[in-house]
Design a binder for these strands. Structure first.
Length: 216
DNA sequence: ACTACGATTACCT
DNA sequence: GGTAATCGTAGTG
């Protein structure tokens, strides 16, 4: 699931369910937006200059959680590639799924779109902080990823690629992926990208049919 | 020890 | 549209 080529893993992660269980409370959301951070030739990646105390987790086994803090908030990555490489996928947005009332309380808002739209917001909603760094997603009972639930209607969806958000180097790489048209994607979708002059392109339909109930 | 800064967000006009 | 808030790292002396 997590081992192997980062860009492929990122694609596979879209549409899966990220689950957090804390003190008997389960919160979860469907992954709708991700960004890949490679090692070689990727100056935007935390691992670009080699291992440090902060980015140790990135060099651990695939499926390890890499959590870092920024601007007094937290962001969550899933480590990919063989151990020692230093690549990961940043989870940028979720469609809220389970434990919505708990997420609303943690986030201090009842607005569904604001619960998990953005990498730091979803960490707050799932109660993930630096103590979750280096968690093994494959064996953990508190944070893990599973296939999406079967719901109402089958929805065919497309993936759009774009440049990554908030970085100063490596802006030309199309390493941001999101479910096209989904209301829970961050970054003000289209207008924001165009104003910034960011690169993006529409992709072929994934061909995958998943069970996804869109938030209205 | 000190400083600058960031894979962000909330709130302002 | 713009910018202040906020704090853990990493880089420097």
């Amino acid at each position: 699931m997590f081992a192997g080529d980062t860009l492929q893993v990122a694609r596979r992660l879209l549409g899966t369910l990220l689950v957090s269980r804390r003190g008997g409370v389960t919160t979860s959301g469907i992954i709708v937006e991700v960004e890949s951070y490679l090692h070689q030739d990727d100056p935007a990646s935390h691992s670009f200059r080699g291992p440090t105390k902060r980015n140790q987790a990135m060099f651990m086994a695939a499926g390890t959680l890499y959590v870092y803090s920024i601007h007094a908030k937290f962001c969550l990555n899933v480590v990919t590639e063989p151990a020692g490489i230093g690549a990961a996928v940043l989870i940028r947005a979720l469609q809220p799924w389970c434990g919505i009332e708990t997420m609303q309380a943690r986030r201090g808002t009842t607005n569904l779109r604001e619960l998990c739209t953005g990498p730091a917001r979803l960490c707050q909603a799932l109660d993930i902080d630096l103590t979750a760094d280096k968690t093994d997603l494959v064996h953990s009972e508190s944070i893990y990823i599973q296939q999406p639930p079967r719901v109402v209607t089958d929805t065919q969806w497309q993936i759009t690629e774009s440049s990554r958000i908030g970085i100063s180097r490596g802006q030309d790489a199309l390493y941001r992926l999101f479910i096209d048209g989904h209301t829970c994607v961050s970054g003000l979708a289209r207008s924001h990208r165009q104003k910034r002059g960011w690169l993006f392109k529409e992709c072929e339909a994934s061909g995958t049919t998943i069970m996804l109930r869109f938030v209205a």
